[in-house]
Amino acid sequence: MEATEAVEPAQNTPAPTPDPGVEPSARSAPRRRRTGRTIALIAVAAVIGLVGGTAVGYGVQAQREPVALAPLNQPGLVYPAKSLPKDQEPAPLAASQDRQAKAQGDLRKLLLPRPEGAKARDWDGWVPLYEYAQDYGLPGSALQFQLEQGIRRVAARSWETGDRVVTVELVQFRPGSEIGALAFVEDQQDFAARDDEAGYDGDAVKGSTNGRTYVYPVHREAGYLDLYEARAYVQRGDIAVAVAIFDTRKIAKKDIRSLAERQLGRL
C-alpha cells in the first residue's frame, strides 16, 4: 500500500466499550479462626501496650531539654558548587544516541529494513489508525479504546520471502502515555499465552524487561497447506512492538527471537 502520514484522530469517535474484566487473584489458604476468649485477650493486650507505650514516651520527652531544630537551608548540599565554564560543559547527546529524539522523529526509519530480495507486502510505512483498527473484531470499539489509551501513530512493514510472510509494527502512544504501550503489549501477550494452540507463556526477549516470543504448533485444515505462526510483543518507552511470522514450514524459535531483538535494538 502507499505510505501515508498518520492523521490525528477526530473527536466524534464511536462509544467506548467497557473495560475487560480483571481476573480475581488467587485466594490464600483459609486460616483457623481464634476463639472468643483468645481474641478478647489479644485485644486487651494491644490496647494496654499502645496506651502504656505512648504515656511512657511522652513522660521521657517532657523531662528532656528542648533541642534546637536544624536550619532549613543547607547550602552545602547544592551540586555543583558553581556552573562549569562554557568550554567544559558536556556536549548534548547526538540524535542517534538520544532515544527520545529518535522516537519523536520519523517512526518509519526505526522499522527493520526489508531483507534484500524480499517482496513488499501490504504495509510499508504509515498505517492510518482507522485502517489499523480493522484487524480487530469490532474496529470501531477497538479504535475508541486505543484512542482512550493515548495511541498516537502506527508504522509497519511487511515482506514475503518464498512462503514466509513477516510483519513488523511500531505502535506509538502519546508522550506521557507509556502505560498505554505497556497495556497494549500486556494485552497482546495475555491473548497469545491463553491461545489454545500456545499453551505456554512464551520466551523472554533479550534486552527487554517484558518482551515475549511465542511459537505455535502447526495448524492443519483439509484442502489447505500447513500453517505455522510465531509472534513477539515488546515494549520500549511509549512504543509497542509487534512482530509476526507466517510460514508453511516450521518456524524456529531463533527466527522470531532474532527479529524481535533486532527491532528492539533499533529503538
Rank of each mutant, 00 (worst) to 15 (best):
T54M: 08
P92G: 10
V44D: 02
E186R: 13
I239M: 09
R64N: 08
L147T: 05
G137R: 13
P75N: 14
D255V: 05
R266S: 14
D106M: 04
E221L: 14
A155M: 00
E186N: 13
E148A: 13
L72H: 09
S141P: 06
A26C: 00
A43M: 10
E160F: 00
V241Y: 03
R231I: 01
G21Y: 02
A43W: 03
A198Q: 15
A260W: 03
D190M: 11
G59C: 06
Y216D: 04
H219A: 14
L170K: 01
Q61D: 13
K250H: 10
P80H: 12
P217W: 02
A91L: 12
G53E: 09
M1E: 09
Q172E: 15
D106Y: 01
G125D: 03
I245C: 05
L84Q: 10
Q172L: 04
P9E: 04
Q188C: 11
E148P: 00
I39N: 09
Y136M: 04
E148C: 00
Q134F: 01
E65D: 15
Y132V: 01
A204I: 05
Y58D: 11
L107R: 05
A103I: 15
E229W: 05
G211V: 06
Y132C: 04
P20K: 07
P115C: 08
E8Q: 12
D106K: 06
E116Q: 13
V22D: 05
A6L: 08
G76Y: 12
A62S: 12
Q172Y: 03
K86C: 01
E89R: 15
Q144T: 15
Y224A: 13
I251A: 12
A155K: 00
A46P: 01
T54K: 02
R174G: 07
D196H: 08
F145A: 15
N12S: 14
G199H: 08
L77N: 12
D226P: 09
K253E: 14
D135Q: 15
A40Q: 07
Q188S: 15
P85Y: 04
R266Y: 01
T209P: 01
P139D: 09
Y233N: 11
K253A: 14
G199Q: 08
G53N: 09
G53V: 08
I239V: 15
Q100E: 15
Q61P: 00
Y214P: 02
L143E: 04
A230S: 08
Q188F: 12
P9D: 03
G150Q: 06
T248L: 04
A46E: 01
A118G: 08
R266K: 14
A155W: 00
D190T: 14
S25I: 07
T4Y: 01
Y130K: 12
G117C: 07
P20T: 06
I245Q: 02
G140V: 11
Q263A: 02
T35L: 02
G223Y: 04
K102T: 07
D196S: 14
W159E: 04
V47C: 09
V154R: 00
R27L: 14
V243M: 05
P18E: 13
E5M: 10
S25P: 04
Q149A: 13
E221W: 07
L143Y: 11
R236S: 14
R164F: 00
H219R: 13
E8V: 09
A120C: 03
A193Q: 12
P85H: 06
Y130I: 09
F173C: 08
